[in-house]
Design a protein around this nucleic acid. Structure first.
Lengths: 152, 152
DNA sequence: GTGCTTGCAAAGCTTTTGCATCGTC
DNA sequence: GACGATGCAAAAGCTTTGCAAGCAC
């Protein structure tokens, strides 16, 4: 984790941004909760535990900065709040999500499922793909099992 | 178009909702601008041309209703506003989008690109897929051509 | 009359912005 | 001392809600 933090620090410095204590605290929260799809408010509350004096605006500004630098990705599952995901180290593309419509759980898929589809889009529609967002909505394994139990 | 409207009317009646003049005007706007990815505000302004007395809240309520009935899909391209797309007649799945990061144009793809990927997700992750959202971000054909021209 | 629907205004949310202050080089 | 970064509060969207009035059956 320290390694990833150092890396992010360098990325910031490369663009002459500083890794201030507030920014560091924010990044640490994101690193600790890497797969949790936190909203800005979530991040704020967690950062506040480490650095109580931080303001919500700073969290927003930091998340926007990290987003510009492609360190985090901003996603939206349609519930009206932006969520922030740390990019996997060296990941070229955004990962995918499985959102359960029963329990709301979000699972991540880091496999590249879209290689062929992207090629098709580039060839057929002449669209130069830079990134993608893929989300499946449905019923997760756990909820399927629960449904079976309750009917038996 | 009248045919589609009749169909929607039946769908509403089946759930004991009425196709009021306001709702009809809203649906007509959506039918006329089927591929335009209108925001609620856009819809409101267009409906107002036909039915000036309508309120924004009614448009929101109608769009929510249509969304529940799966007549329209609510999408979010990450700019903070919800957009509404009429489902294609008989379309089982949501269609896909190509969003140009240069000019903001949104192109639709109605081809089913994800059949294989869905099967993989169901088999490998045991996730029962009900719907999906797939958006590619990149540079559209037109902007690619413009870029070439300006460098030559 | 009962119950759904509407328009208006107010409220609620998330997110952004203005501005004085603070810290760092 | 300059300049970026911060915290707070205010403002700015977009969306939802409360409520009285309207309409249909």
């Amino acid at each position: 984790m320290e390694h990833r933090l150092e890396q992010i620090k360098k990325q910031l410095h490369a663009q002459s941004y500083k890794l201030t204590p507030q920014r560091e605290a924010t990044v640490r929260v994101l690193l600790e909760r890497e797969t949790d799809h936190l909203s800005a408010e979530d991040v704020y509350l967690l950062v506040k535990e480490k650095a109580p004096e931080i303001g919500l605006a700073t969290v927003y500004r930091t998340l926007e900065l990290l987003s510009e630098l492609k360190i985090v990705d901003r996603i939206n599952f349609g519930d009206g709040v932006s969520r922030y995901d740390l990019r996997k180290e060296g990941a070229e593309h955004f990962h995918h999500h499985l959102v359960c419509t029963e329990c709301g759980a979000v699972e991540e898929i880091t496999d590249d499922l879209l290689g062929d589809v992207e090629k098709l889009v580039e060839n057929h529609w002449h669209f130069q793909v830079k990134d993608h967002r893929l989300t499946f909505h449905g019923i997760c394994k756990h909820c399927q099992e629960t449904a079976i139990e309750s009917t038996s």
